[in-house]
Design a protein around this nucleic acid. Structure first.
Length: 586
RNA sequence: GGCCCCAUCGUCUAGUCUGGUCUAGGACACCAGGUUUUCAUCCUGGUAACGCGGGUUCGAAUCCCGCUGGGGUCACCA
């Protein structure tokens, strides 16, 4: 077998997986999959590698790394090489090629070896400038309206510096070769950077850890990465990486820099957006204390807001910079009935989006299959398998795109409503609830038949797994607390001859006579009733809906009544009949 | 500000490499009708774009130049 084509995704574990990172990972995955798919017969392999870039000691965490692995797994993005992750009997990652470890913090000796090599060859050198000195140099350059470029001093004495480095804190810098560097990008074409713009950047920090630039180049080379797909924000880093590869004697991989993703209003999609939205909502509601916030959401659980002190809260409100924790933001949002913008993969998951839909939509941001459907419309709905077969660098666009949540929502709704069976939906919905709505999950698990009915009733109306509950909220209503919507009651209960109130008792009797309380039997009974009564479906159905839910809206009656149960249905009808619907009272 | 990248409907985009078949197509959103026992769905129709200015050419959304606009980047972060 020939040398495999290897792509890699290398997140730094400083938080959840950002939606932009998810797209990068998706493209890397798809590219490797395509090679594997097309090259299988020829003995070629495509591999997707995952590496954790935790060289920033202060900001990295094991929890974050674990979270990113989970997010990727949920999306359906599998990695061939990398941290091992076992879930549902499926193992992702592992070190079958023996090029690990995949945490950069565990690769220190490797980096040290290459630092040594560079130092011996005089291609890298110790530098002793303090942050203060560097700051002053930058300031001086800025005063001259020039970009600060760090260069080795003309009288630099390498041997002396090496000696001095034995006892003094220092960083290592690359002696940048005096030549322009051309990046041959698979998306953007040839891009040349003049030597004058490139400086002797730091490759080893004072704490001994490699900088990103160094680690990424060494690891990519040693791990056999052949194709580097990353965001366009890295384009300016590429000449540095190429210079390093040359100094170290590595091959330069293929590069493909992809366009960036922004919010609809052109701002960056940032974790901060959520905090901003919450802050604005709290201010708009003129709530200036935790107590008033909890008061405003009276009937909701305060959850994590409770651990907020008044001081913290007030400080947060006043200070643009200060941010609340994730759980606290969620709590604030739920108290205010506020929809926070989804930024991280986890946000979309919590909001009830399907992973396949998210990937589909993400793939369309910057890539397009360029194919048509049979009816002549553009092909834009596809699954992971399609991506694995059709993804190509050539069809990646060059311009940035904006993330339109409306379209994502439309895709998600379409999939739930038109491309999913009730059974599949029931399973997905329950899995979602287990993670994000335990109360709903236990209600669902308690009665399988009822859950199936609930799923069948709500699926054709649900846009997300989260909003699925809305359409059948009446199932949980406490009978005594049902209030009848005045407008609907007037229209469907009082108007006409006969009025809804006249028909309802007879409808009740018809229902009471049903033996087998199933959606179909109920639906049949109501239809037969309307026919024999000659009153039309509207006259039979709408009063029932009002009795059941308090308003004239519900899923199809068979499903709605089956969901509520026979006894409860009849009880709600009785309560409704006992209610005073006189014109004055409604 | 220096350097670098980009530029088709409000948004995602097809078309650009290989100029004519583009009075620029699709999707989402929006508007107007229609179907339906409510809601949701569904069907039909509609509004809406080649940033500007120069070239090249018989002919330019497509090629070239300039301008404008947008973005990225200038750390001992990644």
């Amino acid at each position: 077998m020939s040398t495999p084509t290897v792509t890699r995704f290398a997140p730094s574990p400083t938080g959840h997986l950002h939606i932009g990172g998810a797209r990068t990972a998706l493209f890397c995955w798809a590219f490797a999959q395509r090679v594997r798919h097309d090259g299988a017969a020829a003995g070629e392999d495509g591999r997707f590698l995952l590496r954790i870039e935790d060289t920033d000691q202060a900001r990295s965490s094991e929890d974050a790394a674990r979270g990113i692995l989970e997010d990727l797994a949920w999306l359906g993005i599998t990695w061939d090489d990398g941290p091992e992750f076992v879930e549902g009997g499926i193992t992702r990652g592992g070190d079958s090629r023996g090029v690990g470890p995949y945490y950069q913090s565990q690769r220190r000796e490797t980096y040290d070896r290459f630092f040594e090599q560079l130092l011996d060859a005089g291609l890298a050198y110790p530098a002793f400038d303090t942050p203060e000195q560097l700051g002053a140099m930058r300031k001086a350059s800025e005063a001259e309206k020039k970009t600060f470029i760090y260069r080795q001093a003309a009288d630099y004495d390498h041997a002396a510096a090496i000696e001095r480095a034995k006892t003094e804190p220092h960083v290592l810098r690359l002696k940048f070769p005096e030549t322009p560097i051309t990046v041959n990008d698979r998306v953007l074409g040839e891009v040349t950077f003049p030597y004058e713009e490139l400086d002797d950047f730091v490759i080893r920090k004072q704490d001994g850890f490699p900088t990103y630039h160094f680690a990424v180049v060494v690891d990519d080379a040693l791990m056999g990465v052949t194709h580097v797909l990353r965001g366009q924000e890295h384009l300016n880093n590429t000449p540095k990486h190429i210079a390093l590869q040359r100094a170290l004697g590595f091959d330069t991989p293929e590069y493909a820099h992809m366009p960036l993703i922004f919010n609809l209003d052109s701002t960056k999609m940032s974790k901060r957006d959520k905090d901003k939205a919450a802050k604005k909502a709290v201010r708009d509601a003129k709530l200036d204390s935790v107590a008033s916030l909890i008061e405003s959401g009276r009937d909701r659980q305060p959850h994590a807001v409770l651990d907020l002190t008044e001081d913290t809260f007030k400080g947060w409100l006043k200070d643009k910079q200060r941010q609340l924790g994730r759980d606290q933001l969620v709590a604030v949002a739920s108290l205010l009935d506020l929809h926070l913008p989804e930024i991280d993969v986890e946000d979309f998951r919590a909001a009830g989006y399907l992973p396949g839909v998210l990937c589909n939509f993400l793939a369309l941001l910057g890539w397009n299959p360029g194919l048509k459907n049979e009816d002549g419309t553009d092909l834009e709905r596809f699954d992971m398998g399609f991506l694995a077969e059709h993804f190509s660098l050539e069809r990646i666009g060059k311009s940035n795109s904006k993330f339109d949540r409306e379209k994502l929502l439309a895709f998600n709704a379409d999939t739930i409503q038109h491309h999913m069976t009730d059974e599949a939906f029931a399973a997905e919905w329950l899995a979602w609830a287990e993670r994000f709505d335990p109360e709903l999950a236990s209600w669902g698990a308690a009665d399988t038949d009822r859950w199936a009915t609930a799923s069948a009733a709500t699926r054709p109306r649900a846009k997300t797994l989260r909003d699925a509950k809305d359409a059948i909220a009446f199932a949980w209503l406490d009978r005594a607390s049902i209030t009848y919507d005045a407008k609907s009651a007037k229209k469907h209960m009082l108007k006409g001859e006969p009025s809804g109130l006249d028909v309802l008792p007879k409808t009740r009797d018809a229902l009471a006579a049903i033996d087998e309380w199933t959606p179909d039997a109920i639906e049949d009974a109501i239809h037969r009733f309307a026919e024999t009564e000659g009153c039309g479906m509207g006259k039979a159905a709408q009063p029932l809906r009002i009795a059941l839910t308090g308003a004239a809206v519900s899923p199809p009656l068979g499903l709605s009544l089956a969901l509520v149960g026979k006894d409860e249905t009849l009880a709600r009808i009785e309560r409704c009949l006992a209610h005073n619907f006189s014109p004055e009272s409604v």
